[in-house]
Design a protein around this nucleic acid. Structure first.
Lengths: 215, 215
DNA sequence: CATCGTCTCCCCCGGGAGGGGGAAGGGTTC
DNA sequence: GAACCCTTCCCCCTCCCGGGGGAGACGATG
């Protein structure tokens, strides 16, 4: 298995090389000290996995990850950072990384993490997982007021960008009915217009990105 | 440490009890076979951690988890299921569970998972982590068209539910300017109205739930 | 049986939103 | 300097949206 190491600190690179090199069948195919070099390295060597630092001079690791993914390179990226900044985690996930661990991870666990990621699975450091779950769960905290069944139907339709007329057609009722439902939704949610209602729907977790049914 | 076991299958409960009981200082304080009993058990015994099955007769495990969290019980819930259904994972995260693992996890890893969750951290099964990351990353895939800096400002304002007039005041420009920006945003995104633009902003990851600045 | 809430439908009305067009100044690029 | 884009502003117009009011039918709840 071909492993690439990206970190601006030569000492860290040496340490990682020592850990990775100790495994049978694992081969460090290159090192890079910044994002630009990392992309070039991935392009040239096509490693199976790349250990990627976040904070680096010039192009950072997350931008480099995005670039590698965008170029269609099959290298899987395991982000390895010193700092436990939640935003790093979310950005890393969005950038297409397959894992996120802190450098203070024990070497044995790092080996295991690399193995998991190389198998096509993904993995997050436990405290990062907590942050991710909390972001998911936090939406439930600012709960929506109690809506009737019909109102929920209408709100779901609103969250799909439907107009009153379209919702009426969808639900086989008149536009006036839809308007009255919308009015009570706006009142219950304490918002001004349908746009704010949709925002409330997203923020409360009533609808979540990615679960929109295009139908 | 007090551990509670919830599963509708007595055999599974016995197996879990055997695994948990083998650890020094861990004590199984109760078992439940459905969600209602699980909530009562949590209320009564206040265990440190509860191993929770999803599919059970009557109240399911995720509903029970939501109920336990809603009652302010400090028990941390580790969801344990046979089926790798992605929706289970997202629902579990939303319900407030601290972890999600499959029953086919090796006993040693389960012990370790319980330990991690008991420490206040969280944890997901590797393939579930992949599903979560993919949902995060998928937003980046359906990227928004290139917007100008000003248009991004306006779209952010739209995603906060601001009207044209409010946006004009925010950005110190006239309403007409805002309208022309909104018009070009709608055209670029290929949507009909501001509501659909906000939906596109959420679905593309341009804005994410929880990062709304109320300012 | 009376009451309440939900769902359905209707009227009028004002204002914001969106579509169409145009135009000026400033910046970059060639 | 010409072409182009971005940003800013203006006009006209249409129409959907949202606010106000009201009302009948149905089921549940008391």
């Amino acid at each position: 298995m071909k492993v690439a190491i990206v970190d601006d600190d030569p000492l860290v690179r040496m340490g990682l090389r020592a850990i990775v090199g100790s495994e049978d069948g694992w081969d460090v195919v290159g090192e890079a000290g910044d994002g630009v070099d990392a992309v070039a390295l991935a392009e040239r060597e096509r490693p199976d996995i790349m250990l990627m630092d976040v904070r680096m001079p010039g192009m950072d690791g997350l931008t480099a990850t995005r670039e590698i993914i965008a170029r269609g390179i099959a290298t899987r990226v395991l982000v390895l950072t010193t700092f436990e900044v939640d935003e790093y985690v979310f950005d890393a996930m969005r950038s297409g990384a397959s894992g996120f661990v802190l450098k203070r991870i024990p070497p044995a666990d790092l080996i295991e993490s690399i193995r998991v990621v190389a198998l096509g699975e993904s993995l997050l450091f436990p405290s990062s997982t907590r942050a991710v779950i909390e972001r998911f769960a936090s939406r439930g905290l600012q709960r929506l007021p109690e809506l009737t069944e019909r109102e929920e139907d209408v709100l779901r339709a609103l969250a799909r960008g439907r107009s009153n007329g379209e919702i009426a057609a969808d639900l086989f009722v008149s536009v006036e009915t839809v308007k009255s439902h919308v009015a009570s939704i706006l009142m219950k949610l304490g918002v001004r217009d349908r746009t704010q209602a949709v925002i409330a729907a997203y923020e409360s977790g009533f609808v979540a990105p990615g679960e929109v049914s295009e139908a």
